[in-house]
Design a protein around this nucleic acid. Structure first.
Lengths: 178, 178
DNA sequence: CGCTCGGCGGACCGACCGGTCCGTTAAACT
DNA sequence: AGTTTAACGGACCGGTCGGTCCGCCGAGCG
């Protein structure tokens, strides 16, 4: 029987898929490539996941869990303004690491613009929740609504990441709330 | 012999491909779908273009021509600061139109992150040139280099377009240079 | 020692991809 | 009217996709 703690399977497959999907794109990576990287048989993939869509959804959920944890850590400060700056700073740190390939959720929605499937819902839900998080923080701060728009704009620009130094966004955020 | 003005061919194919590639993504659209939308035979496509990559490159070059023309019109003002604001405003207008599906160049680079082919070069060249255009305008204005970073950040955020009102970016740009 | 059973590898399936090729049709020119 | 010629539509090719299935092997247990 399958061990409760990963019987040579699910976690390794998901880890390999995460790396490949994020670096090369979901469409460009086939299931054969995933199982080759995971070092298991193809049937193992379809035992743990109903299909590629479910694997992609699990990949996005895993990224979300990671991102949520990092965001929660950044929100440890008590002052709402400082928390907003920390939120932008956390995204900047994520963007600044090597092998950054953009936002996994935005990338997926770019690859499948009209998708209504499970991964698309995970991606859109993440974006909506994160946007609301910014709105709530700004409301807590008592700043006008346009401040939330601007913070979100900085985050969007960071994830787009076409060459601008992440530091620029963080400094601007500090000016904005300070 | 082929008429000089589009023998039921190149322009119509390119127009159909542009619409389909931009709306649904380059990877998602096959050559069969393009020729069906263009209403011509498959051989016509391969007479006018060596392959799909060349068609995609032509599509991106067409979008670039359109974007360059719109940008040139926005840069008609004499004051460098006003020109920067107009540049951001032009992008905002582009983003605000119905059926906006993101930046064609950024979308392509998201779909093919490691591509070194012709379309990828067109896309990267456009981004580099546009960025330099911003740098030049800021230098002409005599503003510090960080202003160029911030303008570019606004443009990046506009193209990302995950819900923020374009107006917010334009207003912020005006504050920045005013 | 032999039996069971889970997992690896790969063959296999139907669908679709980019790209080539050809038979037919219709228009244009003389 | 006859001939030429361009273009349409579709058959076709090799390859790859997501997904299924099966034969073999090796580890665990009676």
């Amino acid at each position: 029987m399958a061990r409760a703690e990963d019987p040579a399977g699910r976690e390794r497959i998901l880890r390999a898929a995460t790396e490949l999907f994020y670096v090369n794109g979901v469409r460009a990576v086939g299931t054969a490539e995933v199982i080759a990287a995971a070092g298991c048989g193809k049937n193992m993939l379809y035992r743990h996941f109903p299909g590629k869509a479910a694997l992609v959804a699990a990949y996005l959920r895993g990224v979300r869990a990671e991102r949520d944890k990092a965001a929660a850590k950044a929100l440890a400060a008590t002052d709402p303004g400082e928390r907003l700056v920390a939120l932008v700073g956390e995204v900047a740190a994520w963007v600044g690491r090597e092998n950054f390939r953009g936002c996994a959720f935005r990338n997926y929605l770019t690859e499948f613009p009209d998708g209504d499937d499970e991964p698309a819902r995970v991606a859109r839900t993440y974006l909506r929740d994160t946007r609301r998080q910014v709105d709530d923080l700004v409301a807590e701060l008592g700043a006008p609504a346009v401040t939330a728009d601007r913070i979100w704009l900085l985050i969007d620009a960071l994830y787009a990441g076409t060459g601008t130094a992440p530091r620029v966004a963080v400094d601007w955020a500090r000016e904005l709330v300070g």
